[in-house]
Computed example of a mutant assay.
Amino acid sequence: MTTFVLLPGAGSAPWYWHRVTPLLHERGHETVTPALPYADDTAGLREYADTVVGAMAGLDAPVLVAHSMSAFTAPLVCRRVPVAHLVLLAPMIPAPGETPGEWWDNTGQARAQRELAVRQGRDPDAAFDVTELFLHDVDPALARQALDLGEREQSATPFAEPWPLDAWPAVPTRVLLGTDDRIFPADFLRRLTRDRLGLTPEEIPGGHTAMLSHPHTLVETLLTPTPAS
């Protein structure tokens, strides 16, 4: 039996994991889904890590799964408490001293997103649309729930905070990318994972929120260790 600690991405909530948790429970595993204080302007990356560490009290080396911006928080947790594995899903992989606000320009994310839109025949200059970018492969009824129930206000505070670690923590790390991710395109995340972690990401179907669109595939991937692990 393994305990999976599932972290939501920026501005989202534990609800985003609600299709994954029962599948892990059916397989005999346990889950913890902390609600990070994203709406709190007094909370930054360290406070996010404090919340996760508190939620992990008493756990024996769980698997920590971090979605999107939680890749800035999860390594801080790994420096403080034992973690068996770290899994990054569609992650913003940080560099030492980099703020989440700087990450976008530093990595070339905007160019990658635009080039993918052009290749797919979508308007690269269209106004920002959460459904189009984040929920395009999610069942429409579930996407409406995500918009109505799962979205939270995101404070700007952590986006100005430099990532405080000088190196990646010494914990086995896996990176999962969605092959149809429109905001972090697959070729972009392949390059970023190689350049920043020296790893080859594992690829699963789906967009940025694969926990909603492909929960079964995601669970099977989480439960299948890589040869290196």
Rank of each mutant, 00 (worst) to 15 (best):
T2G: 04
T3S: 10
F4C: 00
L6A: 10
L7P: 05
L7M: 00
P8D: 01
A10V: 12
G11M: 02
G11Q: 01
A13I: 12
W15T: 06
W15Y: 02
W17Y: 10
H18S: 11
R19Y: 06
P22Q: 12
H29Y: 02
H29A: 02
T33R: 01
A35F: 10
A35W: 07
L36E: 05
P37A: 06
A39M: 00
A39G: 03
D40M: 11
D41S: 12
T42V: 05
T42A: 10
A43N: 09
A43P: 00
A43I: 07
G44K: 03
E47I: 11
Y48H: 12
D50K: 05
V52W: 07
V53T: 14
V53R: 03
V53D: 13
G54Q: 12
G54P: 01
M56R: 07
L59M: 15
D60I: 10
V63T: 05
L64W: 00
V65S: 04
V65R: 00
H67V: 08
M69E: 07
S70C: 06
S70R: 10
C78P: 10
C78I: 07
V81E: 08
V81T: 01
V81H: 01
V87R: 02
V87F: 01
A90G: 13
P91R: 13
M92H: 04
M92W: 04
I93L: 06
G97H: 10
G97Y: 08
G101S: 05
E102P: 01
E102G: 06
E102Y: 03
E102Q: 06
W103C: 03
W103K: 07
W103Y: 13
W104F: 11
W104E: 14
G108M: 14
Q109C: 03
A110C: 00
A112T: 02
A112H: 10
R114S: 14
E115F: 07
A117W: 05
R119N: 13
G121H: 04
A126T: 05
A127M: 13
D129T: 00
V130G: 02
L133H: 08
F134P: 10
V138W: 00
V138I: 15
P140E: 04
L142I: 02
Q145N: 11
A146F: 05
L147W: 04
R152Q: 15
E153M: 12
Q154D: 07
F159Y: 13
F159V: 05
A160R: 12
A160T: 15
L165P: 04
V171N: 09
R174G: 09
R174M: 13
L176N: 00
L176A: 04
G178W: 05
T179Q: 15
T179M: 15
D181Q: 01
R182A: 11
P185E: 07
A186E: 08
F188K: 08
L189T: 07
L189N: 11
D195H: 08
T200E: 14
P201W: 14
P201Q: 14
E202G: 12
E202F: 12
E203R: 05
G207K: 02
M211L: 12
H216Q: 15
H216E: 15
L218C: 02
E220I: 09
L222K: 09
L222P: 02
L223G: 03
T224R: 09
P225N: 14
T226S: 08
T226G: 03
T226Y: 11
T226F: 04
S229L: 15
S229A: 14
